[in-house]
Amino acid sequence: MTDGTGVAGEADPRQRLRAEQLRLSYGGPLVVDGLDLEVAEGTVTSVIGPNGCGKSTLLRALGRLLAPKGGSVLLDGERIDKMRTREVAKVLGLLPQSPQAPEGLTVADLVARGRHPHQTWYRQWSSSDDAAITEALAQTGMDGYAERAVDQLSGGQRQRAWISMALAQGTELLLLDEPITYLDLAHQVEVLDLVRRLNTERRVTIVMVLHDLNLAARYSDRLIAMRDGHILADGAPGEVLTEQHLAEVFGLQAMVVPDPVAATPMVVPISATGVEHHPESDSSNHPAEVA
């Protein structure tokens, strides 16, 4: 299952993040019921699935934003809810779906807040903070925008600013919830190129939720297809993106052809006659986003 480029040659890569018999809900019915998952070091994993399948919920649980109703999440073999949250923050960074910055906050200020877990109450900044901030800005090409207000940036720039913040946190694991939503295609590719670069150059382990199947296939070592809170398919993009799986997961009739550029699988939709509607289990329906 790890035949992607990210795990070059290692026989048994270390499992960084693990979910065991995970049961998740937002106070109501279970959104995820009895899910097992392991994330290997140095891989890029994308979770795909229809709206409301529980993929964002799963990501929130992996990032300890949501306490499980049952089962547990383990970070490097230790239960994440038993660890000091600040220690977790030094290892695991996360970026929720469409985050909101307070009006007038500059990019530099935003990125500086990524250093929070490394600061103590008596030492609010240090030269290593400045270096990390400068580097994070450079990595995303945002160094020319340090003084600009986040709310005045374009969508792509704003997303890069938030990713810079996550980078400044300097973590080995990064959870991204739909990092390319609302971006145009060029910016989508730009952000995913950045993700890939982080993975290859800094060996950051990445788990993200993506909607675009073709980009997910091209940029991920591993795809996890979810439906109704269960994993239906898990493996290399070529194994997961099959016509049969697409019908099962999305109710989508589609052809899968090789991507002419990257040779990864490419989905060409035909019709969506099998799509079922689940109005009650819409993934965007949890309280945190009503806020």
């Binding site: 949250t85 220690e87 996360l94 970026l95 929720p96 985050p99 910055a101 807040r113 929070h116």
Partner: peptide, 17 residues
Amino acid sequence: LNTLALGEDIAKGLGQR
């Protein structure tokens, strides 16, 4: 408070209780 201003999710992600 700086982290809370970015939303509770981000604050938790940054290790804030």
